[in-house]
Simulated assay, not measured.
Amino acid sequence: MASPPNAPPTTWPKNAWYVACTPDEIAEKPLGRRICGERLVLYRGQGGRAFALEDFCPHRGAPLSLGSVRDGDLVCGYHGLTLGCDGKAVSMPGQRVGGFPGVRAFPVLERYGFIWVWPGEADLADPARLHPLPWAESPDWAYGGGLYHIQCDYRLMVDNLMDLTHETYVHASSIGQKEIDEAPVTTRLDGETVVTSRFMEKISAPPFWRMALGGAGLPEDAPVDRWQICRFSLPSHVMIEVGVALEGHGGYQAPADKKAASIVVDFITPETETSHWYFWGMARSFAVGDAALTDTIRQGQGKIFSEDLQILEQQQQNLLRHPERRLLKLNIDAGGVRSRMLIDKAIAAEQVPVPVDA
């Protein structure tokens, strides 16, 4: 079913899987989170499964996320109305609840170390449409990450990640270097994926990558070949293959013992028109058993992304102050522009008017 006539336009596709939270966020109590404009409560219910309901008690409108879980059911923290995982009333002290209205239940998946929610039409929620993450199920990879709540349009983060030229300036002390500006960028469409690539040869590794080389047991000061391959896929995911290899061993194609290779993981979940949840991390294929290195990389990456956060939030405020100004589109913006085109196409497909019976 498409959107009804005269429905307000949205800036995100709804018929898609978005990361809602990590398992630890609902380990002890319900979690309230707004996703694609919908206020949800996420919790562990029957059998320890993750569920998501509308965060609204049908009794007096209190947020269900302020309640608790009892015997797998969600109990409102205001007057004790108990709801099942399907959103229907189960019981309430001193009351008959058979005629109580229910609340909306949202499709949920738990996979790859994340809790995913489908904020659109439930009958279209197909697990096969979940973004594949083969590294998340492989013992040959290690992962560490975090979460930022960022006050800007989620598409500004997509723009940021699909054009890494900003690293030279925003991340000068960690991953930035002048060679990023100098290396040519190519952008292409691979099916429903936008791919932006940049390769740098025979350069010095910046501080973050010197640390990674050391973690991989390689000389930190050796000349390297470096690569950045950004892949955007709907609804708002960006996976970035990054790494450095000892110079002269094939760069991106170098054998595993000659490089430090990783995937920067970016799940960008819209909250409102001007805010989003940013689940970030790095999956790596070297020194996978080194927990201390995972911690070091997580801390370093967290600092890098906090620098993006400051820029993006200030950018959003400028755009709100000057809505009449048109932004420039340069060749380095091609990845972000094409990604937005895919987003707009997906939104348009959901906005087809519903036929009205004669």
Rank of each mutant, 00 (worst) to 15 (best):
N160F: 00
L161E: 09
L161H: 02
L161I: 09
M162A: 10
T165F: 09
T165S: 11
E167F: 13
T168W: 08
H171Q: 08
H171T: 00
A172W: 12
S174Q: 10
S174H: 08
S174G: 03
I175N: 00
I180A: 05
I180K: 02
I180V: 12
D181N: 15
E182I: 15
P184Q: 10
V185H: 11
T187R: 10
T187C: 13
L189C: 11
G191H: 09
G191N: 07
T193S: 11
V194A: 05
T196K: 05
M200S: 12
E201P: 00
K202S: 13
I203C: 07
S204K: 08
A205C: 09
P206F: 03
P206G: 04
P207H: 09
W209A: 01
R210W: 00
G214D: 12
G214C: 05
G214Y: 04
G215F: 10
G217M: 02
D221T: 12
D221H: 05
D221I: 05
D221N: 10
A222R: 01
A222E: 06
A222Q: 08
P223S: 07
Q228H: 15
I229M: 09
P235T: 13
S236T: 15
H237K: 15
V238Y: 06
I240A: 13
V242M: 15
G243D: 08
G243P: 12
V244P: 02
L246F: 03
L246I: 15
H249D: 13
G250L: 07
Y252V: 13
Q253K: 10
Q253I: 07
P255A: 05
D257S: 06
K258W: 14
K259H: 04
A260Y: 01
A260M: 00
A260S: 14
A260E: 09
A261N: 06
A261L: 01
V265A: 10
V265H: 11
F267Q: 11
F267D: 10
F267K: 04
T269V: 10
T269D: 00
P270F: 08
P270G: 03
T272E: 14
T272C: 09
S275V: 07
F279C: 01
F279Q: 08
W280N: 05
W280L: 01
G281N: 07
M282C: 14
M282E: 13
M282A: 15
S285N: 15
F286S: 00
V288K: 04
D290F: 01
D290N: 14
A291H: 14
A291G: 00
